[in-house]
Simulated assay, not measured.
Amino acid sequence: MKKTVLALLMLVSFTHAEKIYATFDVSAQKSANLAFTASGIVKQVNVDIGSVVKKNQTLASLDNDDIKAMLEKTKIVYKYAKRELARQEKIKKLIDASKYDKVLSNYENAKASVAYQQALYNKTILKAPFEGVIYDKSIEVGDAVSGMMLKTVFKIQSLRERKLILEFDQKYHGVVKVGQTFEYRVDGDNKAYKGVISKVYPYADFKNRKMRAEVKAKDFTVGLFGDGYIIVDGK
């Protein structure tokens, strides 16, 4: 009889799911601090705090008339160098090799000059690296910026995509795994939510001896916190 009871207890313990307590903070799935890498005067600011932006949308630009003029000049040189190369290629067998090499060199230099000036021009335009919302701004028209001393002018975060940064006791380092269910509540919200562990950090924090994991979520306000339970299959 005792053996039967013990066997039943062991069966229950191995078939019931274990719940591991975890707390979490809500973070944006993507976030970035944006800065100009060129020097100049801010000519245009197109967004403000709370602006929803698309990937590659122009956020701000510097006064770049001089760089733009130089870019156009190099494009003209490149256009004629390309034409001359095309003409010389048609009579390549009839001309001196050194003359052809000089034409080819002029073409390659013109092409490189366009690429260089284009890169300088691109640095005067700050674009959104991904779709998101601007949540901090510290730039106005007329401000001077320096590419030698980078200063964050915008902060952007993903519009809806969030991640919950979970913390749980390190003794469960070999138990919590990707794919497990996380049942949770956000502080101030009585609704129960479910998510799936998408990432487990491969280290424990030296200060609080906690492990971390991530759960993907949507639409929560960044900075909120809550708690819940990681469901571990006991089989």
Rank of each mutant, 00 (worst) to 15 (best):
G147E: 09
R209L: 12
R209C: 03
I95S: 12
D169R: 06
M211Q: 12
E108Q: 15
V176W: 04
R87N: 12
T181G: 03
L94I: 12
R160Y: 11
S27M: 04
E140M: 13
A213I: 05
Y135D: 12
V175N: 09
A7E: 13
L166M: 06
M1T: 11
K216E: 15
K218T: 13
D187F: 02
K151I: 05
Y21F: 09
K2L: 14
M149T: 14
M148W: 08
Y172T: 01
S158K: 06
V232F: 05
K30F: 00
K216F: 15
K68E: 00
Q57C: 03
K216V: 14
Y100Q: 10
Y80A: 03
M148E: 15
S138C: 01
A60D: 01
A110F: 10
K93D: 14
K19M: 09
S98G: 00
L34W: 01
I76W: 01
L120G: 09
S51E: 02
N64E: 02
A217Y: 08
Q157T: 13
E108K: 15
F36I: 01
M211S: 12
E183A: 04
V5K: 11
I76S: 07
D205N: 15
F36A: 01
T58M: 05
A192R: 11
K199I: 06
F14N: 06
A97H: 08
R209N: 14
K19F: 06
S113G: 07
E131V: 04
Y116H: 10
H173S: 15
M10Q: 12
A35N: 11
D233R: 11
Q29S: 09
K73L: 04
L126V: 11
A192S: 10
L224F: 11
L71I: 00
Y121I: 03
A119D: 14
S105C: 03
F168I: 06
I76F: 02
V114S: 08
K155R: 15
N46F: 02
F14K: 08
I41Y: 08
R209E: 09
E18M: 01
F24N: 02
E131I: 02
Q170F: 03
V196E: 12
V5M: 10
K210F: 08
L59N: 03
Q157F: 03
V47D: 02
R83I: 11
A204H: 01
K207E: 15
A112I: 14
L6H: 12
K93L: 04
R83F: 04
E161D: 15
V114H: 06
T4R: 11
F182M: 07
V222R: 08
K137L: 10
A115T: 12
K3N: 14
V47A: 02
D136N: 14
V52K: 12
D169F: 05
I67D: 01
K68H: 00
A22V: 03
M211H: 07
T23G: 01
V178D: 03
A192L: 15
D219H: 13
S146K: 07
D48V: 10
G195V: 05
E108V: 13
Y107A: 08
S113K: 12
V175H: 06
I230T: 04
F182R: 07
V26C: 01
D48A: 10
Y100I: 10
K2Y: 11
P202A: 10
R185T: 14
E183Q: 08
S39D: 00
K137M: 11
M211D: 09
V77L: 05
K123Q: 13
M10I: 10
K68N: 00
F220D: 09
Q117K: 14
E18D: 06
R87D: 11
K155L: 08
I41W: 07
R162G: 08
K111H: 13
